[in-house]
Amino acid sequence: MLADAWLVAAKDLKVEWRARIIINQVAPFTLLIVVLFGLALDADPETLRNTAPGLFWVAVLLITLLAVQRGAAIETSDGAQERILLSDLDPAAVFLGKALALLVQLLALEVLLGVAIVVLFDVSVGDPLLMVVSALAASVGIAAAGTIYGVLAVGLGVRETLLPILLLPVLAPVLISATRTFGDAFDRVDADGWAWLGMLAMFGVIYMVSGLLAYGVLLEET
């Protein structure tokens, strides 16, 4: 199964590298979000620093929507998703591969977003380890949920408009937990970031297991 998952992940990443959609369109959008938040809250730099954790993860959710839509479009543009059904690939392996590819893209964008926020908002990172580990845990959950809802929205045929309504509420627990861990890592909130990290890990496991179990059924119905 892992070999099949890697096959799918490598294919998605190669397609993305060739198309340059993430690099040429989503990455600039990521920077634009940070700049717009900065312009909107510029009157009070301290407010910017206090809200930086929440702004970071709201921005991550927005770019997740674009990345998920892009991932779904790759499979539906010329019937490739149907060919996957006709292949020998285990649906769980397909899920794992697509989630892994989405995770890699999200982590790359989060690095860009993190650097932009630290530089532009003048945020100091008190606990880099907590920040990195929580970003990884949150991204696993986001990638898993995004992959599930990406294929679900394709089946409903209205992914551009319905995907945010379906996906964002599901990711709200991740947003809350990740904002707390980043708040602690940035020394901005009085919260036990490592305890919230446990919540993030739990959501990550739940979404991953749900995807491994449900992806085949969802693929059948699309």
Partner: peptide, 23 residues
Amino acid sequence: GHATGLYEDLTVAENVEFWAKAS
């Protein structure tokens, strides 16, 4: 079918290799 199931950004050989491995 009417659709080819090919990935536009992959090459001809990459597409056929992918579907060979997938099968």
